[in-house]
């Protein structure tokens, strides 16, 4: 699958830009990118499975709400995602399997704290069969 992830600048915060061939693909990549902002993903092992579900009135809200749920998994439950696999997705809801492991301060060096995934200026565009999203993270 052709995907791309990049970070863009936002004065106080951090912007996340990612692409995917489908909404499911985009959500998986966005989730990995979010994790990569918090810790080095190569240090994470896929030893346990969790399920993340989210809802939204439109694709943008669904994207933000999905990332909010994932961030709660990381910050609230100290579980670090390695791989994401969307099981089912509709216009307004998504269910995703998340493989990863509980955070271990000895092995997982923090890069930075992400306080929140914001709705500020969220965009989702389709061009030549690719979906590209931009989300601003509060650091």
């Amino acid at each position: 699958m052709t995907t791309a992830i990049k970070l863009f600048d936002h004065t106080a915060d951090l912007g996340l830009e990612c692409s995917g061939a489908s909404m499911a693909d985009l959500l998986e990549r966005a989730g990995e990118a979010l994790t990569g902002c918090v810790v080095d993903r190569s240090d994470i092992r896929a030893v346990e499975e969790r399920v993340v579900t989210a809802e939204g009135h439109d694709p943008e809200e669904l994207l933000v709400n999905f990332l909010r749920e994932l961030l709660f998994l990381i910050n609230g439950e100290a579980f670090l995602p390695k791989r994401l696999a969307v099981d089912s997705i509709g216009d307004r809801s998504v269910s995703c399997r998340v493989n990863g492991e509980p955070r271990d301060p000895q092995r997982h060096t923090p890069i930075r704290e992400i306080k929140a995934v914001t709705y500020h200026g969220v965009t989702l565009e389709e061009s030549r069969g690719m979906l590209t999203a931009r989300v601003v993270l509060d650091v």
Partner: peptide
């Protein structure tokens, strides 16, 4: 007040 983004 921040002037430079965190990544920069």
């Amino acid at each position: 007040g921040r002037l430079m983004s965190r990544s920069r």
